[in-house]
């Protein structure tokens, strides 16, 4: 009985949509998190053609009977809407207003301590910390995952010679520390964030080779006029509790309806089974 498979396929998809919603809710307070929106897609149709000859006349549709085979989860699209501002007054917290990503990098070492490659990641999480870094030979701004913030020119890390106190970041991203100008922070425009690979830790794979310059792949979002920076603030996630909860209700009802459909199909099978059970 095909209807069992139809409803099962739909329930599987709905369960994945539920997973997506729970992940959004789990990241309600993650800085720079962008919610994903699950949407469904129909599966292929079966076409049955064994019908009486006289049926060809007086029809509204072309010959044959077409019945679909259910639904699946089609896409989980990123919602790139701006998250709300969270004032922290920490000088190394930076928020991107508009579209764009920070490029952060980490050196991957093998067992002997030699650097084998650079890991380039994009993030919207602007909560940086200052710490001394041996490889760079100075103080760097890094994320919670240890990736170092890079500049706008060649995507190289900012290295401050001493643990400076007075850090200023302008709207255009220019970083000054104790009056010394270190140049602008790189904020990169990604045309199609849906294609970015999410690698966890609030990071996306930048898909740059070791040593490849970011401007060979991305445009500068500040120059394009679609982004500006704000110091002392963080971007909270763009997950809306109300919206997710109503989505949850929607999903749960769809799940219930499909499980009822399975129940009815099951009863029908039971009825067919009991044709000869006296």
């Amino acid at each position: 009985m095909q209807s069992l498979n139809i409803s099962t396929a739909a329930m599987r998809g709905i369960q994945q949509a539920l997973d997506n919603t729970s992940n959004n809710l789990a990241n309600l307070d993650t800085v720079g998190y962008k919610r994903r929106v699950a949407s469904f897609s129909e599966l292929l149709s079966d076409s049955m053609n064994q019908q009486p000859e006289v049926d060809q006349a007086n029809r509204n549709t072309p010959p044959g009977l077409r019945i679909g085979s259910g639904a699946r989860l089609g896409l989980t699209k990123l919602d790139m809407g701006q998250g709300s501002l969270k004032q922290t007054d920490v000088p190394t917290d930076v928020m991107i207003e508009g579209d764009g990503y920070f490029l952060v990098t980490k050196k991957i070492k093998d067992g002997t301590g030699a650097i084998i490659q650079e890991e380039n990641r994009l993030t919207r999480n602007g909560a940086f910390q200052i710490e001394y870094n041996n490889d760079e030979g100075g103080y760097v701004l890094h994320t919670a995952s240890g990736h170092i913030l890079t500049d706008e020119k060649d995507g190289v890390p900012f290295v401050l010679p001493e643990p400076v106190q007075n850090i200023q970041i302008s709207k255009e991203g220019v970083l000054t520390a104790n009056g010394t100008d270190y140049g602008p922070i790189g904020v990169w425009k990604v045309d199609n964030p849906d294609q970015l690979q999410q690698v966890g830790n609030n990071l996306y794979d930048a898909e740059l080779e070791s040593g490849q310059k970011p401007d060979s792949k991305y445009k500068n979002a500040i120059d394009e006029g679609i982004a500006s920076l704000r110091q002392g603030a963080l971007e909270s996630s763009n997950v809306n509790m109300m919206e997710e909860m109503s989505q949850l209700v929607n999903i749960q009802r769809a799940y219930q309806l499909n499980s009822r459909a399975i129940g009815i199909s099951d009863q029908m099978m039971g009825i067919a089974n009991s044709i000869r059970s006296r």
């Binding site: 739909a10 949407s39 129909e42 679909g68 259910g70 639904a71 499909n258």
Partner: peptide, 24 residues
């Protein structure tokens, strides 16, 4: 025939959240 109708209804229900789906 009723089994087929049930299949068609189940497919409608499965696609209750599919954008642009038109019920049979």
């Amino acid at each position: 025939a009723l089994q087929k109708r049930q299949e068609s209804l189940a497919n409608n229900l499965a696609n209750v959240n599919t954008p642009g789906y038109k019920q049979d």
